[in-house]
Computed example of a mutant assay.
Amino acid sequence: MRTYTHQVTLGPSRVRKRFIKWQDGEADREWKCLTLLDEQAPGLAPRPLERTMENGAPVIVMERIPGTPLGNVPLTDAQNSELGASLRRLYDVPLEAILQSGLEERRLGPNSLEGYVRQALMLETSLSSCLDPGLVGEAVRRSQCFLGKASGHSHVSLPVLGIADLNPANVLWNGMTCRLVDFEDGGRTRPEFELADHVEHIAVRPRCVYDANLLCRAVGLTETEQQNFSAYRKVWAMFWLHALLPGHGAYLRNPRGTTEAQAHYVLDLLARDSEQA
Rank of each mutant, 00 (worst) to 15 (best):
M1P: 14
H6S: 15
Q7T: 12
V8H: 02
L10E: 05
S13I: 13
R14W: 11
R14A: 10
V15I: 15
K17L: 12
K17E: 09
F19L: 13
K21V: 11
G25E: 05
A27E: 05
D28M: 13
R29T: 07
E30R: 03
E30M: 05
W31V: 08
C33R: 05
T35C: 15
P42Q: 07
R47A: 14
R51M: 15
M53N: 10
N55Y: 15
V61S: 04
M62F: 12
R64P: 04
I65E: 01
G67S: 03
N72E: 09
P74M: 10
T76Y: 05
D77I: 14
A78Q: 12
Q79K: 10
L83R: 14
A85Q: 14
R88E: 06
V93F: 03
L99K: 14
S101H: 09
S101D: 11
L103F: 13
R106H: 10
L108A: 10
L108G: 08
G109H: 11
L113N: 04
G115T: 08
R118N: 07
L121S: 01
L121T: 01
T125Q: 06
D132L: 12
D132R: 13
P133D: 13
L135F: 11
G137R: 15
E138A: 14
A139H: 11
S143P: 00
S143Y: 01
Q144R: 13
S154G: 06
H155A: 07
V160T: 12
G162A: 15
A164H: 12
A164Q: 10
A169R: 12
V171Q: 02
M176T: 07
R179D: 01
R179K: 08
D182N: 08
R188Q: 11
R188Y: 13
P191D: 07
H201W: 04
V204I: 07
P206W: 09
Y210H: 00
D211F: 02
D211L: 01
A212R: 02
N213V: 00
C216L: 03
V219G: 02
V219M: 04
E223M: 00
E225M: 00
F229G: 00
A237M: 07
A237D: 11
M238T: 09
W240R: 10
W240M: 08
L241S: 13
A243N: 11
L244N: 11
L245W: 09
P246D: 04
H248P: 03
H248Q: 12
G249P: 01
Y251E: 02
P255A: 09
T258V: 08
T258M: 15
E260I: 11
H264Q: 06
V266S: 01
D268R: 01
L269Y: 00
R272I: 00
D273C: 01
E275Q: 14
